[in-house]
């Protein structure tokens, strides 16, 4: 996983709530067996509208998505995270996230930042007023900064450490392989197997 320490970039305001993962990447794009090429599918239905915010020249190259609440609800498809990253996003900011999306994002190094709804709206308004506005997301300080404004956000210490170091979960878990083996020895013998 790519480490995330601090990121400065421009922000795109997406003023929609309940942006489900079917919108982030429709199912027709999930047939690929590779991990690359998903940027073409990002918001593919919405991007057909020339007025859609990601199509506006002023927001080209932005790397921080600032969405309405309940971003990433619905399907567990990690392809949603891959599509956002491959399109160029490093951070998504929203008041609430779907649990599975949020989890998937932290596994891949896409930072989901939860801010209060009114702070998200202030940041959206700032990005609308000045699309060139630079926004800094500082994971070390747990802080988002823009213009003269700043807002703290919460993230648990373990996830923060993993993201800052860019650590792979499987490697970390395998350090405890003995614990897994000993748990397995104590499992009930009647539990089902698939064989």
């Amino acid at each position: 996983m790519e480490a995330f320490t601090t990121h400065t970039g421009r922000a795109v305001p997406l003023r929609r709530s309940n942006v489900d993962t079917d919108q982030i990447i429709p199912a027709v794009w999930l047939k690929q067996v590779s991990r690359t090429g998903f940027e073409k599918g990002l918001f593919s239905a919405w991007r057909e509208d020339p007025e859609f915010i990601l199509n506006q020249p002023a927001y080209q190259g932005a790397s921080i998505l600032v969405s309405g609440p309940d971003f990433g609800t619905g399907s567990s498809r990690e392809h949603a995270v891959w599509a956002l990253q491959q399109y160029g996003f490093r951070v998504v900011i929203a008041a609430r996230f779907g649990d599975i999306f949020r989890n998937n994002a932290t596994k891949m190094g896409l930072l989901p930042v939860v801010l209060p709804a009114e702070t998200v709206e202030a940041l959206q308004a700032a990005a609308e007023a000045d699309p060139a506005l630079e926004v800094t997301v500082d994971l070390g300080e747990r802080q988002v900064r823009w213009g003269a404004e700043s807002a703290g956000f919460e993230i648990d210490d373990y996830t923060r450490w993993r993201l800052l170091e860019g650590l792979d979960d499987i490697g970390l878990t395998l350090r405890n392989a003995d614990d897994i083996a000993s748990y397995e020895n104590g499992r009930q013998s009647w539990l089902p197997t698939t064989v």
């Binding site: 567990s76 498809r77 990690e78 392809h79 995270v81 649990d99 599975i100 989890n103 998937n104 596994k107 891949m108 648990d156 979960d169 499987i170 970390l172 878990t173 395998l174 392989a177 897994i180 397995e184």
Partner: peptide
């Protein structure tokens, strides 16, 4: 019983475990 993303699928295939906070 809960849904997971592909990174976690790989994690379960490799370790039969998942790191998780209790909801």
């Amino acid at each position: 019983a809960f849904g997971i993303g592909t990174s976690e699928v790989e994690h379960v295939l490799a370790t039969q475990t998942l790191p998780a906070y209790r909801p």
